[in-house]
Write a protein that binds this DNA or RNA. Structure first.
Length: 559
RNA sequence: GCCCCCGUGGCGCAAUGGAUAGCGCAACGGCCUUCUAAUCCGUGGGUUGCAGGUUCGAGUCCUGCCGGGGGCGCCA
């Protein structure tokens, strides 16, 4: 019996109580009830707080209400015992057979185990990283890469239709500055004011000159553009290659330039005209503004500056409309804490174009991440030219450990990573702890195969999984779909990692329990209990592999 | 000044309003002829920043304060 099934059993019990008049609920019985794994041993297999939540509505006290539910539940199939504890919790013990059956169900579901339909029908765009193509990706981008990719993965697992999108800011002042910086480096001139520094600029300039020797002889102006475009292409390619290596794959790379292209449907120009028609724009001091204060922003925002240049916000508005026009009913933006000032204007902008931002827009603000080596912070400074790049991080830490280490913390938690700690190849490193547990299931299954054991099919006797540790493991495995669904709904993929650590721990404890051996010992024959436990190991392998897969981390068969 | 995030053992962090607040590191002590010891078992370590409030129940929600980070440009 899964938690969801148990929830249904409890709902049925409540319905029966209402039907026979034992209790009166003004709103009727709830359609689902909360069922959780108690933290404390001795509180049963599952606990529910329905009595605490419904007693007042039913005009009685929690314990009296609980008594009625208890009697009803005890008569239900698959329930072994029900206790009332504390203020009115119902602690439920499930029959071993009903519970053990879950293991076989997990094996049958296979790679699909953990997926659900809770977000079915939703079309979601997840935009993340969106770095300028003017430099290498660094530590901050790395965190958003992991979070964005994982949010996309859990949303998909929950049934949503998802597109991962990278918005390329390939237009405007920064690009020109980038071109000028490359040009200066190639010509041996000093870097322009506020220009790009760092060794990578000189390296890039050298590559460009090697590929296009004639570039330095181009006329002034033309030369800058040539450097800009060549640098753009190289830098973008590098970002794309590195993200591919990092197991983060985008569906759409959207160029800001497209939004300004002549004849592009939904261009910035058209967008502004549309907003003007709706009366959300006004002119002041020679600039064109959007009246975002009508929708809760701190101040109105400029779209066209006095000098005639469009602001990024103008592009952002057209881009948002473009996403909506492509059919996304939900747009997720993943921004760094240094961009949180954007939230107000994005929401107001969505309202200006006629949307309800609470429904269509989800701006997630990720907190900053620091990284330490030998007790010292590796500082990111473009000015000083010292940048902790994604490439360096992958080289030094490895893709699995790097992804996992960033995946196991919530986005709004400021984070300090220690390189020594996350690269340590031992059990105290969570990524290897989980991977090791998976590898262990693989070895066990291989050993079982060598002994001629195979999955029992219809002969599976779930009631043989009757040890306390068996039950703990089955219940841990049974949580997986709920964890994935909540990770999707809350946009909190770190829950997957935490869950896997917990489950790996339960599995390891089970493994070390003599009474729960899967393989027959010595010359013992293979008994039905051995086969039942083989099912359990298969189910564990399924959950660990599916969970690691959701994190984009490999699930090795041997370590 | 205003806005956002954070404050939980020495350190890094979990905990969807539930019961006795967990995990890893660091410290100390145990178990390998038996399915992988990268596992497991045990010991010590906490007034969840402070003060109120809501609730049957608060680390979690509300108010105020203290401390840290970030943001408040016709820059990105």
């Amino acid at each position: 019996m899964t938690p969801d099934q148990l929830s249904s059993v409890i709902v049925a019990a409540l319905e029966a109580l209402v039907a026979d008049g034992s209790v009166t609920l003004p709103d009727g019985p709830p359609s689902t009830v909360t069922v959780e794994r108690p933290r404390q041993k001795g509180h049963g297999d599952y606990a529910t707080n329905v009595a605490l939540q419904l007693a007042k509505k039913a005009g009685t006290n929690p314990r009296a209400f609980a008594e009625l539910v208890k009697a009803q539940l005890e008569a239900s199939d698959g329930i072994a015992a029900v206790d009332i504890a504390g203020p009115g919790f119902l602690n439920i013990t499930v029959e071993a057979g009903a519970q053990g059956q879950v293991a076989a169900d997990i094996v049958a579901a296979g790679v699909a185990y953990g997926t659900s339909e809770v977000l079915a029908g939703q079309s979601i765009n997840v935009e993340f990283i969106s770095a300028n193509p003017t430099g290498p990706l660094h530590l901050g981008h790395t965190r958003w890469a992991v979070l964005g990719d994982l949010i996309a993965r859990v949303l998909q697992a929950a049934g949503a239709s998802v597109v991962r999108e990278f918005y390329i800011n390939d237009r405007g002042n920064q690009m020109d500055l980038f071109g000028a910086s490359l040009e200066a480096a190639a010509l041996g001139r000093p870097t322009p004011e506020d220009g790009y520094q760092g060794g990578y600029v000189a390296d890039l300039a050298a590559v460009i000159v090697a590929e296009q020797p004639g570039i330095v002889d181009l006329p002034e102006g033309e030369r800058l553009v040539a450097f800009r475009e060549a640098g753009y292409a190289l830098q973008l390619k590098q970002q794309q290659d590195q993200l591919d290596s990092f197991n983060t794959h985008f569906d759409v790379w959207f160029s800001e330039r497209e939004l300004h292209a002549e004849g592009f449907e939904g261009s910035v120009e058209e967008t502004l005209q549309g907003l003007k028609d709706k009366g959300h724009l006004f002119e002041q001091d020679g600039a064109l503004w959007m009246r975002t204060t009508d929708f809760g922003d701190d101040k109105d925002r400029v779209l066209i500056r006095t000098n005639g240049e469009l602001t990024y916000f103008a592009s952002d508005t057209a881009y948002y409309l473009n996403k909506r026009a492509r059919g996304f009913d939900h747009c997720i933006y993943l921004l760094g804490a240094d961009h949180h000032g954007y939230v107000g204007r994005l929401r107001a902008m969505a309202a200006c174009v006629g949307d309800d931002p609470a429904r269509t827009l989800d701006v997630m603000i990720g907190q900053l991440v620091k990284i330490m080596r030998d007790g010292e912070e590796l500082r990111l400074s473009k000015r000083a030219g010292t940048i902790v790049t994604l490439n360096e991080l992958m080289d030094e830490i490895g893709v699995d450990a790097l992804r996992y280490s960033l995946a196991r913390y919530p986005a709004d938690s400021p984070l300090t990573l220690d390189i020594a700690e996350i690269t340590k190849a031992s059990h105290d490193n969570p990524v290897y702890y989980v991977q090791y547990a998976h590898a262990r299931t693989c070895r066990m299954i291989a050993n079982a195969t060598d002994l001629g054991m195979s999955l029992p099919g219809d002969d599976f006797d779930a009631a043989l999984l009757d040890h306390e540790r068996d039950g703990e493991l089955v219940r841990a495995l049974a949580e997986f779909p709920r964890v994935v669904a909540s990770a999707a709904e809350l946009r909190e993929p770190h829950r997957i990692a935490r869950y896997l650590e917990d489950t790996a721990s339960v599995f390891n404890k089970w493994y070390d329990t003599k009474e729960c051996r899967m393989l027959p010992q010595g010359d013992d024959p293979v008994r039905p209990a051995n086969l039942a436990r083989l099912v359990l190991v298969h189910a564990t392998q399924t959950v660990l592999a599916n969970g690691l897969g959701l994190l984009g981390v490999s699930a090795p068969e041997r370590m």
